[in-house]
Write a protein that binds this DNA or RNA. Sequence first.
RNA 1: GCCGCCAUCGUCUAGUGGUCUAGGACAUCGGGUUCUCAUCCCGAAAAUCACGGGUUCGAGUCCCGUUGGCGGCACCA
Length: 440
Amino acid sequence: MAEEVRVRYAPSPTGNPHVGNMRTALFTYLFAKHNRGKFLLRIEDTDKKREVEESYSAIYDSLKWLGLSWDEKVILQSERLDIYKEHALQLLNSDKAYQQEEAIFFKTKKEGSTSWIDLVGNKSIKFENRQVEDFVILKSDEYPTYHLASVVDDHLMNISHVTRGEDWISSTPKHIMLYESFGWDIPQFAHSPNILATDRSKLSKRHGSIGVLDYKRDGFLPEALINFLVLLGWTPPSGKEILTLSEMIEEFDLKDLNTAPAIFDVRKLEWMNGEYIRKTQNSKLKTQILEYLKDISQGKLEHPADEELDKVIPLVKERIKKLSDFIPLTDFLWEKPEYEQEVFEKVVKKRLDIVKLLKEMLEVMEKMEKPWKADMFEKTFRQFGESHGLSATQTFQLIRVAISGQLVSPPLFESVKILGEEETLKRANEALAYLEKSSS
RNA sequence: GCCGCCAUCGUCUAGUGGUCUAGGACAUCGGGUUCUCAUCCCGAAAAUCACGGGUUCGAGUCCCGUUGGCGGCACCA
């Protein structure tokens, strides 16, 4: 029976964790949880030149936002310098390493080959040892390199399976040689394929938002991002496309991972996010939208208020793919619309007709019994349209533009209801005034 | 250049030698519902399974080669 599964996510603090790294972290997390093991976090901050101070909190925030909690205290490599040095010295003293210009180099084996079974794809990967050159394990500033630090820590942390990106495949022989030199058990390795940008190149900053937190800011839900990422390279045996974290844990196995790199297509993410938004309870969606708006307005949010949101959410729920879509769709409700001649003309061709129609509509509205009822409103204006040679679409579009300035909005009657009779009349009047002015 | 990984619709993928004249999802296009936009429903187009050789009665599935993509070859991780 295998020992306890202990795995780790080991980012270096050089910026916001991007979706590729996070997907590897996700796979690692799922593997741990599926096997009732531990998921640990270690930050590899051994290169002070490349370090970005904010990345520490970005790493924590990203993991927390996605719901990937780690099980033990975070390990910071920068606090363990003496441990690495001690191990480097141990190799030096046993003639397995040598010093050159202040740095310590590891002597690699030059004969034979080194191989391992990679859990992703369950395949054997082999390197000829003569291809593996001696490499630095302790730099002249006494900081360890990745190779030494990760091997030492993985051993000391009792890591059972080393999961990381496939760009580490070529250095794995170095790591195996280190384990052997120390006389330690060699963990299992699993290298997951990369995520590529649409042009098949490695995902990088120039492709725009690639950090996990960028997606948060763009209005994506963590559940949707997770779900999208997990499907990049993995299909659950059940074939389900929409699944919760616990369903993923239930079904996950490293051996089912695809070996080919995947391209990140944001359009599918957007679809999935829409699916999640639609199945979210209104009350929960309310707090999510409110929090999102507060976040991006840095707390200076005036509208919508809590009770305004209650009315609006059912109207927008099926119309937004991202939380951020809420803004352009609803801001006319709390901000004065800006009118444009051309927008009106998209509904009715002649400007003079528009003025005339709007005037009459206004009269009808003023005479309508208050409070306005949706069905009354609809009936009245359907009749109005018929008697003026307008289609229902034209009629309602004209009203829509008059009260919102836009051709697209949530359903008209409900929007009018939220605005209220007074505000609706006021806007219709303003629209009319605008048109009369611009046509004179 | 050397070494390694990879290769099914535009994209994510199903497929583990015969049931594949290749299935699903996103995107695209067309239609229906409808006050706009969406949602929802129906339908279409889209992959000679990168190419070439084998093995086999039979290959998308196994083997070899080629091509292409990606990665590594730092006192970065």
